[in-house]
């Protein structure tokens, strides 16, 4: 209880600003990347190169009507966007984006972020069941099948890194990479991790719970206006957190020559997010059984072997 009120308010504002700005920038970036990969320009009209397009869309969404379907399970339906958004604010707390830019240095920060990342699926499940729509329900069920397939490889990746760094603290893990980023020692693990966070953030080629061409919009099919934009915000914030985690676990976090720490942090983070976008606009969506095959028969054994080999090398 020794934290001053000013600090708390500052951090709350800062985290809210990061969540909001990040979503604005990422939506714009996504549309730009998509456009250029299709030989298009993407948004160009509102602001220079369409930079303010997302703001305009956000204002438009604010002005729209929030509809609750008659047949929907009202409390679950209303709770779902909140459930998927709230954990983000907590998960942002232990993320170090710079030498001193960290809300709370927590010695189990990594565990906290991973645990809260799991709540994302819960929000999707709530939305799927609350909407009382068969597509939404299918989307929710798929999200559950998906989490079982990717979570174990993801945890194995994180476990390997914890073993190498000897700490659960995100800050300590980043500091342990002063002399060499873990991506140099663990390139395979980095690839597995990137694949699992693509799965975790529900992005194409693994966007089974959303799957426009099969489930129309999947779990958020019935959501309009603010509910929809909250889901959007949550999706992009989870991307931010997953990419931040990747940059801390594998790329040394804020550490780098010449530039100040936060700049390096953001550079690495948005580099990884660009990678995710690149995947999305390159690869077609997998079938659900192909995803299960990938998760259980390829990622899991590879991660396990990698884990055991790393343990062996570390023990020597």
């Amino acid at each position: 209880m020794s934290i001053s009120p000013v600090t708390i308010v500052c951090y709350l504002l800062g985290i809210s600003a990061v969540v909001g700005l990040n979503a604005v920038i990422l939506v714009w970036l996504e549309r730009k990347v998509a456009g250029h990969m299709h030989f298009r320009y993407g948004p160009m009209e509102v602001g220079p190169h369409g930079l303010l397009q997302t703001l305009a869309d956000g204002i438009k969404l604010l002005g729209k009507q929030f509809l609750v379907p008659d047949a929907a399970d009202r409390p679950l339906f209303l709770l779902a966007p909140v459930v998927s958004l709230v954990p983000i604010f907590v998960a942002m707390v232990p993320l170090p984006l710079g030498e001193t830019l960290q809300a709370w240095e927590l010695n189990i920060g990594l565990l906290l972020v991973v645990a809260l990342g799991l709540l994302n699926t819960l929000g999707i499940l709530l939305a799927g069941w609350g909407s009382n729509n068969k597509y939404a329900l299918l989307g929710g069920s798929r999200a559950v099948a998906q989490i079982l397939a990717y979570k174990i490889p993801l945890l194995l990746c994180i476990l390997t890194i914890i073993m190498m760094a000897g700490s659960y603290s995100l800050r300590q893990i980043a500091l342990a990479q002063k002399d060499g980023w873990y991506i140099l020692y663990q390139p395979l693990l980095f690839i597995i991790y990137i694949v699992t966070i693509t799965l975790e953030t529900n992005r194409s080629p693994f966007d089974f719970s959303e799957a426009e061409s099969e489930l129309v919009a999947g779990f958020h099919i019935e959501y309009s206006a603010m509910g929809f934009s909250l889901f959007f915000l949550a999706e992009y914030s989870y991307m931010f957190i997953a990419a931040a985690l990747a940059s801390i676990l594998f790329l040394g976090g804020w550490q780098g020559p010449f530039l100040p720490g936060p700049v390096w942090s953001l550079l690495k983070l948005y580099g990884i997010i660009f990678l995710l976008m690149w995947f999305r606009w390159t690869f077609p969506r997998l079938r659900i059984d192909q995803m299960l095959h990938l998760g259980w028969k390829i990622l899991l054994p590879l991660a396990l072997v990698n884990f055991l080999v790393t343990a062996g090398v570390l023990a020597l």
């Binding site: 189990i108 906290l112 645990a115 809260l116 819960l122 989490i147």
Partner: peptide, 15 residues
């Protein structure tokens, strides 16, 4: 607390 969220909500509840 974190283990509770991770194992119960992340694993048991999902199962």
């Amino acid at each position: 607390a974190v283990m509770q969220v991770m194992i119960y909500i992340g694993a048991v509840c999902v199962a």
